[in-house]
Design a protein around this nucleic acid. Structure first.
Length: 276
DNA sequence: AACGATCCCTGTTGGC
DNA sequence: TGCCAACAGGGATCGT
């Protein structure tokens, strides 16, 4: 699942293939990818001939500057990934968008389950989109614990649900939220408003550590269907996960069986002994 | 306003 | 062994 470490790894892998290059051609193989484009007909015409500027990221959104003031948005959803491929290389069956910026290479968006999307937005469209309502980036703009706690005050929603709320904090998904809560020693079903400042500090520290570790390993690749780096390699973080996907297995810290449960419809994993 | 439920998708998994 | 229901989940939207 592409979460912040996977999207940041993807961003870094795309920089050499895209930055400063002209958009020679764009091909949309699945129109569902354009469902967040206010007028889908704008997508290709806005990109044609434009030069790609900086590649930015906010939470799980990849934001690419194109032309004078347009923003090319990518979200990888649940099963999306980007690849930098030789144009002669076989095209994966689930390729949805192809971008040619070079005589012999192209950038491909592959997304079997099509939860991902892309769009080219004007400043006004960007300001009106959910991207403008994202919370601070969990990697580059993590607020002080006091601020995180004040925004959680009075909230009865589960702590995990709040961590997954991209308006509260942008970047955590189901895997890293479970890992953060384990590292912090807190059960995800605790009402967010019940956390003490010390506990919120532990969550904040855990976010920094978990995201840094995930990024260092190039993200988490779960299986063949999931995320891969733009060069086709798998992320190496899977074997470092403490709880996610480890239901019934012994806790790496204390040996107690990891519990798998549901929190607001999301599969969740925790150690009943290490987390309170 | 806050919160939970539902929907969109399709490859994989697990039970019978 | 083969079939099929259940499952996975980010974000938008809707109902309470």
């Amino acid at each position: 699942m592409p979460e912040l470490p996977e999207v940041e790894t993807t961003r870094r892998g795309l920089v050499p293939a895209l930055t400063g290059r002209p958009v020679l051609a764009v091909e949309v193989l699945h129109s569902r990818m354009l469902r967040r484009q206010p007028d889908p007909a704008d997508f290709v015409t806005r990109l044609a001939g434009k030069v790609v500027g900086r590649l930015r990221r906010r939470g799980k959104f990849l934001l690419i500057e194109v032309g004078e003031d347009l923003t090319w948005v990518f979200h990888l959803g649940m099963s999306g990934r980007m690849s930098v491929s030789d144009r002669a290389a076989p095209v994966h069956i689930h390729t949805r968008v192809v971008v040619q910026t070079d005589a012999c290479h192209e950038v491909r968006m592959v997304d079997p389950r099509t939860f991902g999307f892309t769009a080219v937005l004007t400043p006004e469209e960007l300001a009106a989109s959910s991207i403008a309502r994202l919370g601070p980036d969990a990697l580059t703009a993590l607020p002080p614990a006091r601020e995180m706690a004040s925004k959680a005050a009075g909230r009865r929603v589960a702590t995990k649900t709040l961590l997954l709320d991209q308006r509260y904090l942008a970047g955590l998904g189901n895997i890293y939220a479970d890992e953060v809560l384990f590292q912090a020693g807190i059960s995800g079903d605790r009402p967010a408003g019940s956390l003490t400042l010390v506990e919120m500090g532990a969550i904040r520290s855990a976010i920094r550590r978990v995201l840094a570790d995930g990024l260092e390993h190039g993200g988490t690749s779960l299986d063949d269907l999931a995320y891969l780096l733009p060069d086709g390699r798998a992320g190496r973080h899977l074997e470092y996960l403490s709880v996610y996907g480890r239901g019934g297995k012994p806790c790496r810290r204390c040996g107690a069986p990891i519990v798998k449960e549901r929190i607001n419809g999301r599969s969740s994993h925790r150690c009943p002994a290490c987390q309170a």
